[in-house]
């Protein structure tokens, strides 16, 4: 039964395909929740499983076995490879921990710089304008949340399109999307297969803000146009940089624009939650397998400690 602990390491492999479909077919708000919760569950399961692998490997080493007061050898289904797999798991945990720390430090630095920048100017409402030749705009989380926009971006859009941008960024702050994005980032560092899930979460957050903006300005086409023009303006500014490899599929921005242009979400969404259910089932299976596997491991350790009979 301890073999169940391998399941949480394998389940994330099916998550990317499910996540992409969930982000595409489900309405943005439920998609964001399902994706984030699933990513956290899968990440937690995979971390616990790796930890359990390390622990079993250690308990196979006599010095640690005596430290753990084991009187019998610990029995696992993977006895022959327990120590090498523990070493591999420890390596994966170390790599994940390192990249996560690096990302956390960078993000903290970025946020601090953005906050310093915003705090230097008196606010006009929640707006912070940065005089810069680079078209850029983002939501700055905090209390109160701010909308940061560069002068170049302001000049790339007309007044109605700017209202779209403000409404979009305010939606990010209102719905506290930075927590979802941080969770996505965390999960992506726990298992490589969760990286596409992080992208799906980002996409769902953007789609949700797009829909909120479209509702605020009351015009889906205007919203689509604002996003497209802002994207093209920032892209034109970056044209001096090396071109990125052409993607086989459309990137997130054209998909967002197309989603707005195709009109409000049709009724077919009643059918599609199957995908979301599948993803949720996957996450639940991971949590279940982890819990059962851990309970079983605990039992095996107690047996090895001679506390209970087999």
């Amino acid at each position: 039964m301890t073999a169940l602990l391998l399941l949480p390491l394998l389940l994330p492999l099916v998550a990317p395909a499910l996540a992409r479909r969930t982000a595409r077919r489900l309405a943005p708000a439920p998609a964001l929740w399902v994706l984030t919760l699933a990513a956290l569950a899968l990440a937690g399961g995979s971390l616990t499983a790796l930890g359990a692998l390390v622990l079993t490997g250690l308990l196979k080493v006599p010095a640690f076995a005596s430290l753990g007061e084991l009187v019998h050898p610990l029995r696992t289904p993977w006895d022959a490879v327990a120590v090498p797999s523990a070493a591999a798991a420890a390596g994966l945990l170390a790599v994940g921990g390192w990249t996560l720390t690096r990302s956390a430090v960078r993000q903290a630095r970025g946020l601090r710089a953005a906050h310093t920048e915003a705090a230097r100017r008196p606010a006009a409402g929640d707006l912070c304008i940065v005089d810069s030749p680079r078209p850029d705009a983002y939501a700055l989380p905090g209390r109160p949340g701010r909308v940061v926009i560069t002068t170049a971006m302001i000049r790339s859009l007309d007044a109605a399109e700017r209202e779209v941008l403000f409404a979009h960024e305010r939606a990010h702050n209102t719905y506290r999307h930075h927590y979802f994005l941080a969770a996505a980032e965390l999960a992506a560092h726990c298992h490589p297969a969760l990286r596409p899930v992080r992208d799906a979460i980002r996409y769902a957050a953007e789609r949700m803000a797009d829909e909120a903006a479209a509702a605020t300005v009351g015009d889906r086409r205007l919203t689509a146009r604002a996003i497209a023009r802002a994207a093209l303006a920032s892209s034109a500014h970056r044209s001096g940089r090396p071109a990125v490899v052409p993607a086989a599929t459309a990137g997130p921005v054209p998909r967002r624009v197309a989603a707005l242009l195709t009109g409000p979400p049709p009724r077919r969404h009643r059918v599609t939650p199957w995908i979301a259910l599948l993803l949720a089932a996957c996450a639940t299976a991971s949590v279940g397998a982890t819990a059962t596997g851990m309970a079983d491991l605990h039992h095996e350790v107690e047996v090895a400690q001679g506390e209970i009979a087999r």
Binding site: Y138, A182, R202, A230, S235, P252
Partner: peptide, 12 residues
């Protein structure tokens, strides 16, 4: 990742 940007970068 935490600063939700209005538009991500574009491929050609």
């Amino acid at each position: 990742t935490v600063l939700a940007r209005f538009v991500a970068h574009l491929s050609p």
